[in-house]
């Protein structure tokens, strides 16, 4: 692995069919218990018949460049690797849940069996072995692209350089490393589709 590697994912929503294969692959690969998810596809419907459409938003941990969860973790259990992947040390986490309360994306969960906080780690065990993350490997539309955004020859870097991309909640200054092409603003906006409580 090169020294300045920065792993990133581009999700091309023009190719996503909303099949949830990524959610299933993630569960199987990472032993994610029932009731919690590290990768999921939010689906919205909009419009009135006959002018209707469906939008998908595959979601996972953004493995931010500037992660608030790492900053706020009192015991240093959440940390960022040199290649940008944000991890949780399972032996050090005390389960105070402050990272979950701070995360602007609600991507962390308590593992109800192991009683620690977990999240998507870009399948770092596969990446370290030279494989792709499970969700990328399994995506039938090839909507997910994973690679080193600092390597100009990688597919991720090429897409970032040539396509209009967007991240979730850029105003949070977390600098997410999951980028979207063709994402629907109504799917990205958490309050859309929720009736006034």
């Amino acid at each position: 692995m090169k020294k300045d590697t920065r792993w990133a994912m581009v999700i091309d929503l023009r190719k996503c069919v909303g099949c949830h294969s990524c959610s299933v692959a993630c569960k199987a690969e990472n032993d994610v218990p029932p009731s919690v998810f590290r990768s999921w596809v939010k689906i919205i419907e909009k419009g009135k018949y006959p002018n209707v459409s469906k939008s998908f938003l595959p979601s996972l941990c953004n493995n931010c460049e500037n992660p608030i969860c790492v900053r706020n973790c009192p015991v240093g259990a959440s940390y960022k690797r040199e290649d940008g992947i944000v991890l949780v040390d399972p032996h050090r986490c005390i389960g105070c849940k402050y990272c979950m309360a701070s995360c602007p994306y609600d991507v962390r969960h308590i593992n109800p069996i192991r009683k620690i906080v977990q999240k998507c780690y870009f399948c770092h065990h596969r990446v370290d072995a030279g494989l792709l993350p499970a969700c990328v490997e399994t995506c039938i539309g090839r909507a997910r692209v994973f690679g080193d955004m600092n390597d100009p020859n990688s597919d991720v870097a090429k897409l970032l350089a040539t396509e209009p991309v967007i991240v979730l909640k850029p105003e949070m200054a977390t600098e997410p490393r999951v980028f979207y092409i063709g994402a629907d603003i109504d799917a990205m906006e958490p309050m859309e589709g929720h009736t006034e409580e």
Binding site: R71, N72, C73, P74, V75, G76, A77, R92, C93, I94, G95, C96, K97, Y98, I110, K115, I116, V117
Partner: peptide
């Protein structure tokens, strides 16, 4: 109440050993 609310109450001593000076909970402990 804080310790009971931890998912791993027996690891509360981590707060005094593995400190993150950026976290307000570290000052709090």
């Amino acid at each position: 109440f804080l310790i009971v609310d931890l998912e791993q109450p027996m690891r509360f001593w981590h707060l005094f050993v593995f400190m993150n000076p950026q976290s307000p909970i570290t000052y709090g402990s």
